[in-house]
Amino acid sequence: MKRATFLAQRKPAWQNFEKSLRRVETVNQRRLSSEEVLAFSRQLREVAHDLELVRTRDWGLDLEEYLNRLLARGHDYFHAPRAGTWHTIGQFLFMEFPRIFRTWWGYQLLAALLFFGPLIISWILIQNEPPLAARFMSQEALDQYDMMYSSEDSASLDETAFSFDSWNDYGNERASMAGFYVQHNVGIALQCFARGILLGIGTIYTLLFNGISIGATAGYVLSLGHADRFLGFVVSHGSFELTAIAIAGGAGLLVGDAALHPGQLSRWSALRLRGRDAGQMAVGAAFMLVVAALIEAFWSPAPIPSEYKFLVGGFLWFSVAMYLGWSGRERT
Rank of each mutant, 00 (worst) to 15 (best):
S266F: 02
E296H: 05
V291I: 15
A282P: 03
I247D: 00
L289S: 09
Y308Q: 14
A302I: 10
P303F: 08
W268L: 14
R274D: 12
Y308N: 11
L253Q: 11
L294Q: 07
A248V: 01
G249S: 11
A285W: 00
P301W: 05
Q280S: 13
I245Q: 00
I247F: 02
M288N: 04
L271C: 14
F287C: 14
P305V: 12
P305L: 09
I304W: 07
F298I: 00
L294T: 10
G279R: 05
A293G: 11
L260R: 15
R274P: 04
V283Q: 03
H261E: 05
S266C: 06
G256I: 12
P303D: 02
I304F: 11
L289P: 11
R276N: 10
G256A: 09
Q280K: 15
S300I: 03
H261C: 03
A248N: 03
R274F: 10
S266A: 10
L254D: 08
L265F: 13
V291W: 01
E296G: 09
A251R: 00
L260F: 09
L260N: 13
R272V: 11
I247E: 02
G284S: 08
W268D: 08
A302F: 14
A258N: 10
I247W: 06
L254E: 09
R274H: 15
A285T: 09
G284E: 05
Q280T: 02
G250W: 00
